[in-house]
Amino acid sequence: MKNIREIALEEHHDFVGAKMGMWLFLLTELILFTGLFILYAMYRVRHAAEFHAAATELDVVIGTINTLVLLTSSLTVAVGIEALKRRNRKLAKWMVLLTVLFALTFLVNKYFEWSAKIHHGIFPGADELLSRSQGEIIYFNLYYAMTGLHGLHVLVGMGILLWVYFLIARKPSEKVVVAPPNIEYLKGAQLIASKGEQERWVIDEIKDDVVEVEVVIKKDPKKAGVDIPNIIKLENAGLYWHLVDIIWIFLFPLFYLIT
């Protein structure tokens, strides 16, 4: 009698759990920024006039353009998720790539905006800035701290989206690794990998010197089903990206539109 063992390629995806973890993480990001918003609110009630005066020096046009860029990027990533759910990988790929490009556009705009300010001697610790009223100093210090931290989040978000892009672009495959301790129980046996009732794959006998077995089943992208692992990743990346957008939705009027 032949020694045959079977491994099941059963998938454990707690879609809701993964999303819940992400939402909780977003909550912590929100509170992180709240610290800065508290400082902004307290300094603003104390130095209302100076805040207004300082705000006139920011460029509303660049601010508005950046707002629109981020809003549109939120749309593209949302469409991308939707496309992936509908098995339209091509559209999903394009949408994620577009989102990354929008993120880049935002950062480039920010770079020019900051350089112009720094060129005029308005940056933390500069003599030009320190010669102004305390309210204006605090305004610009907060401006750099808040948009700087936000910019950092844009950068991180961009990186995450890029990573997910490459995941989606890869050919979909099922992978399962049989490693110690489970491998011990499979020695000398022939393996059958199965998924559901219909699909079965037979694998060679496992010799004694085998340390690890990796079962990879490549699929035809056109026939592939719903790509659940990548949907979870893209959806969570999207959630993060939307949060970055929401923070900017508040930063924009508070810094640019209080003239």
Partner: peptide, 14 residues
């Protein structure tokens, strides 16, 4: 969260 269960019959060690 994405993981594949390996359903191998084995005695449970501590």
């Amino acid at each position: 969260m994405a993981s594949h269960a390996i359903d191998v019959q084995n005695a449970q060690e501590n």
